[in-house]
Design a protein around this nucleic acid. Structure first.
Lengths: 134, 134
DNA sequence: GACAAATGATACTATTGTGGTATCATTATG
DNA sequence: CATAATGATACCACAATAGTATCATTTGTC
């Protein structure tokens, strides 16, 4: 079970690398640096760009810069963008809320765990991760 | 992202139902009660039987009974049987341990979260779930 | 002993999510 | 206007999850 999928992980790496460069960073540079398959990385960056996480510049000499300061880019943002909302307590039988959810003891436990996990993830930003790597 | 997959969930329901019946419970009964696809349920029960969670009786009038007291059947047992060990901090790039794992700040966070989740799940037994449903 | 009703073993199939490609259009710089 | 970049979008491959099918074996009942 993966808490973080590959695209989120790639996005994280790409954003971290962009932070460390003051100028715009192009896809070829990122590919060289991070060994991420080029077309996949492009797709990821386009999503990040649409979401405002990075800003893009087209044309020769173009590339990407951050769209937000690194203290305002949360891991949970990336997670939600690429993986949807983090939900651990969904009933496996229904996409929708299980009618029995109110008296399902397992669901209660799971939503407690979900809350804890969210509490842990919430404060993690790009800035904090980079600091941690130092 | 599912913490609990369908087979684990089915297994859970089946075991709970078996607990509440003193006599052996057959697949047809379980199907009627729980609305689980018959062949799938059969497969699940066979696994549970091999693992000793339930005991099986072949032949006419056969079926399943518990193989352990409900206080000794842990949710984590079922989880591990059907989903393997719970790991949240695996690096998405490698199946094996990432060489950079020691200075990867994200991995540290994730393994902390993993520990918490395990701490929460550990005490949950079939007995405790049934109690909670009362 | 034959039959019926159950599980055991095992191989196959379907659906879905993840991970990745490919292609053409658009834009900016020299 | 050529070139080097991103934008949009459609497609493909693989693996995991979910489910099916079939035949063999065991056991109780008549």
């Amino acid at each position: 079970m993966k808490l973080i999928t590959r695209d989120t992980d790639y996005a994280l790496r790409a954003v971290c690398f962009i932070v460390k460069n003051k100028k715009t960073v192009s896809v070829p540079e990122l590919v060289r640096e991070l060994n991420i398959p080029r077309p996949f990385l492009r797709k990821i960056l386009q999503v990040l760009s649409r979401k405002g996480i990075v800003r893009s510049f087209k044309g020769k000499g173009g590339g990407f810069t951050l769209g937000l300061p690194p203290e305002k880019i949360y891991l949970l943002d990336l997670l939600r963008i690429f993986q949807g909302p983090l939900k651990l307590n969904e009933c496996t039988l229904n996409k929708k809320r299980c009618p029995k959810i109110s008296n399902c003891p397992l669901s209660k436990k799971l939503s407690g765990i979900e809350k804890q996990v969210l509490r842990e993830l919430k404060p993690i930003t790009i800035a904090s991760l980079i600091k941690g790597m130092a």
